[in-house]
Design a protein around this nucleic acid. Structure first.
Lengths: 346, 346
DNA sequence: GCCAGTTCGTAAATCGTTTTACCACGGGCG
DNA sequence: CGCCCGTGGTAAAACGATTTACGAACTGGC
């Protein structure tokens, strides 16, 4: 109470390794060797250290430790939007991977804005993460002028597939477009609207490329009906409604994004068309709760677990050998055939 | 190449404050003062430091800095499941709050398992977070034997409302149950099934308490029909289907959780009952994409933004004054009246 | 011209841990 | 008995930033 305060709060700050050492009657070095050490320690000192640490509730200071060791065993994760179930699912998988490998992850979101993304990455660098998993805001990731020149080992996931200066892991989006469209063609559809949110990213354009390729391979090149809806559900709904007010209606819709899927469903309701009797739908990015829809949606889905597992191991490889040549992985997609796409009626 | 390696990787590790100092021809102390310092620095040295830092791409080492300063300006966030849209939404709000206040957040998920939760919290403590925001796995949070005795300032959010040893911020779940039920009663319903996932948590029990209170206040005490479905959508569906196969069907369902809402919808489909003509439904936890349902769901919703903002500021207060008495905030809920609940038909 | 006061720079201590260098002790062996 | 080596302990030097203590240079007032 009356004592002079030299140390900042002087309060009950966490016990240090020195406190443990004092209580156990050994040196800090020995404590360190007991807790994580490579060197042998006599059983009796080991025991007394364990007891002292337990009694004081000692928790190693991660910052001091990784300052000394030169690595943090932490991976930074950058996603556009954590509220988006696709990304939060990925993050959950990564978290499990990390736990298995003795790592921890540090999650930040960019709001799909390259400036915020850059700032968040700066702060991950300041925290000296050992690696980065990034779902980039733009395909030209890292091209902005203020961007940090040197990054820790990084892997681009989902977006910016095939980037020149990074490893990339993403779904095979061309196949996604191709298989979704082909399924409808096999069912006899010849007028298929392809609904997409935007053409700003290569992964979105790839899905449309797959759609085009499927038409072409089946001699339907002239029948392209591309609808670019926009980033919101409502915009997609409006776009598809406009398309369907025209005289010659498509008999099927292939929605190439999650949001455009929702937009298509709302439009079908609003137009009072019967799904799947009057129109077929192939949806995108089916997630568990979508099973509440009737009819069950035939859908193209990404394999989030594979995406997460592969990107994780590519990152680990990159950390192990920083100078290896870049890899570009494409993860196959899944087409789940359910009830929303039916043979064309005529 | 031929040189002897003394320092670990000897590679191009990040530049330190000493490197900047050397390049600028000043001491490290001066560099520190330029970058964050409280003390004045002459304009010319300031300039040369800025230039040197810029040229080297210097990024302050967050670990070294917070080791010295004694705080991290980091808040640990613990949620049961990041894939759950409710929690990922909360996290997104917190991230924004943190950015505004010059903090960063460190997110971990517990999988609703108290052991994992405890481990994750240990590692947040090792990282010396300045505070914790916790959606606890159990109402008796912190009671397990191995649990750390001293925690940084912490606020329990959503779950474990009214905990003895922590501040808590949660929705007014009794009101949620009361208002949802009252709405149905006002529409003339007298046989109302209350569907819940479990009775394991106080926030779930509170919703049922609200349901009971509403019945009682309207002289319907004898008409209680509680259906405890279970944690999965399917279990809820089965439970409600069983209930509806009995002779006297309820005329309305009040779903007190998100999962049970989905289960109820699936059951209604499966039983081939018309919503809202033959049965009324008050849903829980409406989120944006739920607008794709037809009819639009009348729903009780939690105010995630309020929840996040209030818990954040309670935590900041707690950090500022560690010895203040505990506060227990209840955030009002919202009842959105749409189309799925109609006056009872007879 | 001298003294007090301000400004600004540097050296060194510090945060808590890991790791290196060094030393004491004892056992085995020639 | 003398030497070598393995074991296990300690002190001290890192890691990179912040902050304290001190001192040099300059200013201004008398």
């Amino acid at each position: 109470m009356g004592g002079k305060r030299r140390k900042p709060p002087a309060g009950r700050s966490s016990p240090t390794i020195r406190d443990v050492a004092r209580r156990a009657g050994v040196s800090p070095g020995t404590v360190s060797n007991v807790l994580i050490g490579v060197r042998g320690v006599r059983p009796d000192s080991r025991l007394s250290v364990m007891k002292a640490a337990e009694a004081l509730g000692y928790k190693s200071n991660h910052m001091a430790s990784s300052l000394r060791r030169g690595h943090t065993r932490t991976i930074g994760v950058v996603v556009p939007d954590l509220s988006n179930e696709f990304f939060s699912g990925l993050v959950t998988h990564w978290e499990a991977q990390a736990a298995k490998a003795g790592y921890e992850i540090l999650v930040v979101s960019s709001g799909d804005d390259p400036d915020i993304e850059s700032h968040r990455i700066q702060s991950l660098i300041a925290r000296r993460v050992d690696g980065l998993l990034i779902a980039a805001a733009r395909d030209d990731f890292g091209a902005a002028p203020g961007f940090p020149v040197t990054l820790p080992p990084a892997v681009l996931v989902d977006r910016a597939s095939g980037h020149k200066r990074f490893d990339t892991v993403s779904s095979d989006n061309v196949a996604a477009g191709y298989e979704g469209t082909s399924h409808l063609i096999k069912l006899g559809h010849r007028d298929i609207a392809c609904l997409t949110s935007a053409d700003s990213h290569v992964h979105l354009r790839d899905r449309v490329r797959g759609y085009r390729k499927a038409l072409k391979d089946n001699g339907l090149s002239g029948r392209e009906r591309l609808v670019v809806g926009g980033r919101s559900v409502d915009a997609c709904q409006i776009a598809i409604e406009r398309q369907f007010r025209r005289p010659a209606r498509p008999t099927a819709i292939f929605a190439t994004t999650f949001f455009s899927t929702l937009g298509a469903i709302k439009a079908i309701h609003a137009l009072d068309i019967a799904l799947p009797k009057d129109i077929s739908l192939v949806a995108f990015e089916h997630s568990d709760w979508m099973t509440v829809f009737q009819p069950y949606l035939t859908a193209v889905a990404q394999r989030r677990d594979e995406l997460a597992a592969n990107s994780w191991s590519v990152l680990m490889d990159r950390i192990a050998s920083p100078h290896a040549t870049f890899r570009h992985l494409k993860i196959p997609i899944t087409l789940s055939i359910r009830e929303s796409a039916r043979p064309v009626s005529n």
